[in-house]
Design a protein around this nucleic acid. Structure first.
Lengths: 183, 183
DNA sequence: GAATACATGTAAAATGTTACATGATTTT
DNA sequence: AAAATCATGTAACATTTTACATGTATTC
């Protein structure tokens, strides 16, 4: 699946593994993240499948770079995937919910501490979506040839915003419920 | 991580791999799912680590069963995990968002079809949380020795409900925005 | 007569994480 | 003087998925 993310970015421009790691970190990482090592190995496999081709570029003063370019096969594979509707909803893994599920016997204060900490983290993430992320997307909206794309990026940002708000709502609800209980 | 889910269930009662698969499917699967094969191999590893012990029970007329029981080490490991606060928020992978992110060049109708289908699926899941899941939990709340646990299960159910509602809100918002656009 | 429930396991493949190794240039 | 940026890669390990293999009893 990481393959599609990489094809998506390479469909804009040729790029190196290093570039792609950075693109992902500042954009899709909130709904599709990857480690550097996985990006490099996936690119290698994609080249064997002829979805991309690479050329090695020697540089002076800094490390050599391997620049990947999407092929026609790669473009077809990307479009084919984008056009084929998903037939199910995503299954997530949520450590926090798993812990809560089994926490009936745990001291109230310990659970409350964790919930408060999570609330802080989600609050922080919400602000990131509302400020930093929003500003970056707005810049693309009002310029260059990417204003159309930026409208789609905005939709994914908005998901993040709603998700964090929902999370905070839930955490406050659960915190209240727990506080009322006697331990 | 599946280890903790299995310890959590075994902490209630000894059970077989088959039992555990079913417990998971009807309860935690919405935030922690697992395939049958993974459950069996994980139990085996857990026995090697002395977190559980097993006894083989021959049966007549039906397959033999291997019943797992949690050990003191297993209990300690479970409680230790439950009491240690998470220090970050979960990173999810959302195929739909990845697709939307790269869909600027895709025909509007194709994207809209997918979004409508996702809305239906989320609506269905929302109803499941509000009806089936709710009823099961309410039964435990008003009986036996599990009414305390059921209050925690309810918190995770509530998360599911809010999550599906948020998803539907977002999908409707995105559908409206896309419909207004000219292709 | 077909499907479902009961019940266990292995093997192979895919995916993802952690850790290691290298080394120049630029910024703090 | 230390840390960050640029840049690539491999190896080992852990996790997860897919697929295979088997066989009885009960329910539709």
């Amino acid at each position: 699946m990481l393959k599609y993310a990489l094809l998506g970015f390479l469909n804009y421009n040729p790029a190196t593994g290093y570039d792609l790691k950075q693109f992902i970190d500042v954009s899709t990482s909130y709904f599709w993240h990857a480690k550097q090592s996985q990006i490099y190995t996936t690119l290698k496999k994609m080249e064997e499948e002829d979805l991309v081709s690479s050329r090695f570029e020697p540089q002076e003063g800094r490390p050599n770079r391997r620049v990947y370019t999407i092929s026609q096969d790669g473009k077809d594979e990307l479009i084919g995937w984008l056009e084929k509707p998903l037939d199910s909803i995503e299954k997530h893994k949520e450590k926090l919910l798993l812990k809560i599920f089994f926490s009936a016997g745990i001291k109230k204060d310990i659970v409350l501490f964790e919930l408060h900490q999570q609330e802080k983290l989600h609050q922080k993430q919400l602000l990131r979506y509302q400020n930093t992320t929003k500003e970056v997307i707005d810049q693309f909206k009002g310029s260059t040839g990417l204003s159309e794309d930026a409208e789609f990026w905005e939709m994914t940002r908005r998901f993040g915003e709603l998700y964090e708000q929902m999370n905070i709502t839930w955490l406050r609800e659960v915190i209240s419920k727990l506080e009322e209980k006697d331990d």
